[in-house]
C-alpha cells in the first residue's frame, strides 16, 4: 500500500490563499487505509481551512468529495460537477492520484494535501513501515524475502556495511539492520549459501523516462 501523511496546514493554506472557493478531494484507496486522505480526513482539512480563513477575515467556501480511487479516470469523472464550481482543488490522494486528477482537469489548479511517503505495510492502527521501493527488479528470492533496497539504510545489495551493532543499523539504533534480518531469515531457512551469490548492480538509469506497464496480452482493443 502507498503510505502518505497530511501536509502541514500552513503549506496548504499558502496554496489556497488566492482562492475563495475550493474542493477538497479524497480517495477511498490507500490514503483512506493509511488514515491520511479518506472521507474523514477530507472533513478535518475542510473544517480546518474554513476556520483558519474565517480567523483571517477572509472566508472561503470548501466543498468536500471523496471517490473510490483517484488513480482511475472513471472515478475522477465523479468530480466534474464540483470542480466546475471551484477555483482550485486540494487532493488528499497519493502523488499518483494528485497528478492524474490534475491531468484530467487541466484548467483547474490541483494542489497536494498530503506528502506521499513510501510503499509500506500497516503494522497496527497508526503504524506503518516501508517494505518496498519499487526498484523494478525484485531480488527477494535471493535475500530470504527481505528487501535490501528498502530495509538497508544504504540500499546495499551484497551484505552489510559493517556499521551495524547488536542487529541495529548505524543510522539509528531504532532501525534493525536489514542485512542482519536477511542473515537471520536465511539461516532459519537453511539457505545461508545464497549469500555467496553476487547480486549485480541495478540499472537505475531512467533512459526511457517514467516507468510504464503495458500488458499487450490484457490491453483492450476498442
Amino acid at each position: 500500500m502507498i503510505v502518505a501523511e497530511r501536509k502541514p496546514i500552513e503549506k496548504i493554506l499558502e496554496m489556497v490563499a488566492p482562492y475563495k472557493k475550493i474542493l477538497v478531494a479524497g480517495c477511498y484507496g490507500c490514503v483512506t487505509v493509511c488514515l491520511a486522505g479518506g472521507e474523514k480526513e477530507v472533513g478535518i482539512l475542510a473544517s480546518q481551512i474554513r476556520m483558519a480563513r474565517s480567523k483571517e477575515d477572509n472566508p472561503i467556501e470548501v466543498l468536500e468529495q471523496t471517490v473510490e480511487r483517484q488513480c482511475d479516470a472513471e472515478y475522477l469523472e465523479k468530480f466534474r460537477d464540483n470542480i466546475a464550481q471551484v477555483e482550485a482543488v486540494v487532493s488528499l490522494a497519493c502523488g499518483i492520484g494528485i497528478q492524474y486528477l490534475a491531468e484530467k482537469y487541466p484548467k483547474t489548479p490541483v494542489f497536494p494535501g498530503v506528502n506521499t511517503l513510501f510503499l509500506g505495510a500497516n503494522i497496527d492502527v497508526g503504524k506503518w513501515e516501508e517494505r518496498c521501493m519499487a526498484c523494478g527488479d525484485c531480488v527477494l528470492d535471493k535475500t530470504g524475502g527481505i528487501c535490501p533496497i528498502a530495509r538497508c539504510s544504504k540500499h546495499l545489495l551484497n551484505g552489510p556495511c559493517g556499521g551495524s551493532q547488536y542487529g541495529k543499523c548505524e543510522v539509528s539504533k531504532d532501525v534493525p539492520c536489514g542485512w542482519q534480518l536477511i542473515y537471520d531469515r536465511l539461516k532459519e531457512l537453511g539457505q545461508l549459501d545464497k549469500l555467496k551469490e553476487i547480486i549485480p548492480p541495478k540499472n537505475w538509469l531512467r533512459a526511457k523516462g517514467p516507468r510504464t506497464l503495458v500488458r499487450e496480452d490484457l490491453t483492450l482493443e476498442r
Binding site: 477511498y28 483512506t32 487505509v33 488514515l35 472521507e39 500497516n122 497496527d124 492502527v125
Partner: peptide, 12 residues
Amino acid sequence: EKCAVCLTCYRS
C-alpha cells in the same frame, strides 16, 4: 461503498 476494508475498526 465507503469501506476500504482497512481493518481500522477491526483492530480498534
